[in-house]
């Protein structure tokens, strides 16, 4: 087994909230967006991250990419830690790691042509290329994602959402990074177009041996592209498992509720979604124990006292005290 290409350990992100404070001079409260997330990625692995809005999935990958702040935790690339305050480290990171974003239109500069947009990473990362070589590479890359050469001098607003996302993918991959972070890349697209983009990403991943982190709220989409799935809730990790196992046999009560609520496109399946009651905890005032305790149907007394870490419990990475109970019994 090779060494991990990317290791993330104990990432924590908080944001100051001014709202609701007693006096203007009182210290701001901290909203805890990501509360200790860590994982290792092997070269060529595809990790899906799912969770509902506000669970910190986007904040987490933005922090990994260095596009957002983090309070503590570390990220290592090929075993070497990244210091986000050092320019040289960031350059090294971005050479190897690129990102595609949720809103395909908003992530392309409206005043640049597609050719300029896609060529930009080459100008920065491959200064040895002359303009003819660059142009050739842009044509090849655009062709690979299904954009014709004759459209190269158009502007982003002349393309549809699905095409813009293809252009975003071309820009991310032209300088041959090894890791691609995808933040909800298909959630703004229609079903028929969404399938095109997922298939394209899957093909490119296999061709280029990319390591992928794929963040989405749609479990069906994540299931389709990922080797492993990480389930997040209120900034914490609930469960991490191979995609097929997680879907077939969810172990964490939150994963179970989430899966039961996914609508099945088959009218003969009479679904019994597990309706969660109870309120979400406030992210500025997280409970001491398990993050899911206020809505968990299987809560025991210990859940209010101890916050379970994501540990290997009976062969699966689950952050739930019930697994320990089951082991003891």
């Amino acid at each position: 087994m090779s060494d991990p290409i990317l290791s993330v350990s104990d990432m924590r992100v908080t944001f100051p909230v001014r709202q609701g404070q007693r006096f203007p001079w009182s210290p701001p409260r901290r909203l805890q967006a990501v509360t200790g997330v860590g994982f290792d990625l092997m070269p060529g692995q595809v990790l899906g991250i799912v969770g509902e809005s506000g669970c910190g999935k986007s904040t987490l990958i933005r922090a990994i990419a260095g596009l957002g702040p983090h309070d503590s935790g570390s990220v290592s690339l090929d075993g070497e830690p990244i210091d986000y305050a050092r320019r040289a480290d960031l350059q090294r990171l971005r050479r190897r790691m690129q990102m595609i974003f949720q809103d395909p239109m908003a992530s392309l500069n409206p005043r640049m042509t597609i050719r300029e947009i896609v060529a930009e990473p080459l100008v920065y990362f491959c200064p040895e290329l002359n303009s003819r070589q660059r142009r050739q590479k842009v044509i090849e890359m655009l062709d690979r994602v299904g954009i014709a050469e004759r459209n190269m001098n158009r502007f982003p607003h002349e393309f549809s959402g699905g095409q813009c996302q293809r252009i975003g993918i071309a820009r991310a991959l032209i300088a041959r990074p090894q890791i691609l972070l995808c933040d909800e890349p298909v959630s703004a697209l229609d079903v028929s177009i969404q399938a095109q983009v997922i298939n394209l990403l899957k093909e490119l991943q296999a061709e280029m041996g990319l390591t992928l982190i794929f963040v989405a709220h749609d479990l069906g989409v994540v299931r389709h592209i990922s080797d492993d799935i990480l389930v997040m809730y209120m900034g914490g990790m609930m469960e991490l498992a191979p995609a097929a196992d997680l879907v077939a046999n969810p172990r964490h009560p939150y994963t179970q509720a989430l899966l039961s609520a996914v609508p099945v496109p088959d009218p003969r399946v009479k679904q019994q979604p597990q309706i969660l009651t109870g309120d979400l905890p406030s992210p500025t005032d997280l409970p001491q124990g398990c993050l899911f305790q206020s809505r968990c149907p299987k809560r025991i007394d210990a859940c209010a006292r101890t916050r379970p870490d994501l540990l290997n419990r009976q062969g699966r990475q689950v952050a739930c005290l019930l697994e320990d109970e089951a082991e003891r019994a």
Binding site: I193, A195, I198, N199, K202, L219, G220, V262
Partner: peptide, 18 residues
Amino acid sequence: AVPRITEGDVTLSAIPGS
């Protein structure tokens, strides 16, 4: 074209075009 959680490793059949 709808990705289903019950089936993973099949290629989705996308509708070509725009």
